[in-house]
């Protein structure tokens, strides 16, 4: 049996005049966490719906666990777990009732597969009588994950599970995904948060319906292709404007407490930049070589032509 769990080839899909996806191809291998990284409206949800057999592609083909999404959708529906982007549980049912309902819908019982959700469900157990609608964002996410897992799916489709969730709950959520992966489940997950990319084995950077790049996060970062400098100073906003007026600057973006700068000419020395900034009245500027992150790569790839 092949190791490919999800296979997609040249998938395109239009909504009216909008090309939601154009010619998207990729493979997910067994036991892999595959991340779709991109902003809202990039086409992530459309791709999820096509792979979970909820939508038909206009062209291209795709299979999940060897079954065709168009013709063998019933087989796929038996085998996958899906967590849509919106909060998709019954708000007026309790935590326990929700889990019990989804277990039955998928022809199983909580008892039979409790071991799969145990680690996550113990955190919910104190609130099991509470209505799902009254849970906090992080808790809702955990319950939705339990419901998607309860029938022991081979592949999990998680569409933006961490959107709008605070950083602490997000971190916990990714730790849970790590455990599931070790349990042998393949996961396709999407997120608009670039910092979550490094938690995936392979990522696809997606924008405006096309993949900018597919590779491991390490390779994507290593392929950045430009030396990156971190610049900081006292008045960061003035510094940003002046950096952009420096001749030979290729890109300059604020990144937390520093600005990330690349030069169009690699031979430009940092001393030259420092002098330029001093002339502009920035006295205490601090320059050092930095390492590009996924977000640098994303912006670099999405703005090849007009980087500023």
């Amino acid at each position: 049996m092949s190791n490919t769990v999800i296979h997609a080839e040249n998938i395109s899909r239009k909504y009216g005049a909008v090309q939601a996806l154009s010619e998207v191809s990729f493979d997910v291998t067994k036991g892999e966490v595959f991340g779709l990284i991109g902003p809202d409206g990039a086409g992530k949800t459309t791709l999820f719906r096509i792979l979970t057999t909820l939508l038909l592609a206009d062209s291209g083909s795709a299979s999940v666990e060897g079954f065709d999404v168009r013709n063998q959708y019933k087989e796929i529906r038996r085998r996958v777990g899906y967590m849509p982007g919106r909060f998709s549980l019954y708000q007026d049912l309790s935590v326990e009732e929700n889990l019990d309902f989804f277990a039955t819908v998928f022809n199983t019982t909580i008892k039979e597969n409790y071991h799969l959700v145990k680690d996550i469900y113990v955190q919910l157990e104190p609130f099991k009588k509470r209505k799902a609608g009254a849970l906090s964002g992080g808790m809702k996410q955990k319950l939705a994950l339990c419901c998607a897992l309860i029938h022991k799916p081979g592949v999990l489709f998680l569409d933006e599970p961490t959107t709008g969730v605070d950083p602490v709950s997000r971190k916990e959520f990714w730790e849970m995904l790590g455990n599931l992966k070790r349990g042998g489940i393949s996961i396709l997950v999407s997120t608009p948060y670039m910092d979550e990319a490094e938690k995936c084995d392979t990522i696809a950077l997606i924008q405006k319906g096309s993949f900018l790049k597919i590779d491991s996060p390490e390779n994507i970062v290593n392929d950045f292709g430009h030396s990156l400098w971190e610049v900081s100073g006292k008045n960061m906003f003035a510094l940003l404007k002046d950096l952009r007026s420096f001749p030979g600057i290729r890109s300059c973006f604020p990144f937390g407490d520093t600005h990330h700068v690349t030069f169009s000419d690699e031979s430009i020395s940092s001393d030259k930049l420092k002098k330029f900034l001093e002339l502009k009245g920035h006295e205490d500027t601090f320059l050092r070589r930095g390492k590009a992150g996924i977000e640098d790569c994303f912006m670099n790839l999405s703005h090849e032509d007009d980087i500023l």
């Binding site: 057999t53 909060f87 019954y90 819908v105 022809n107």
Partner: peptide
């Protein structure tokens, strides 16, 4: 509206 129909459809029901 709440998205539960998506999950129900992606189930063996």
């Amino acid at each position: 509206e709440t998205g539960t129909m998506e999950i129900i459809l992606v189930s063996p029901m």
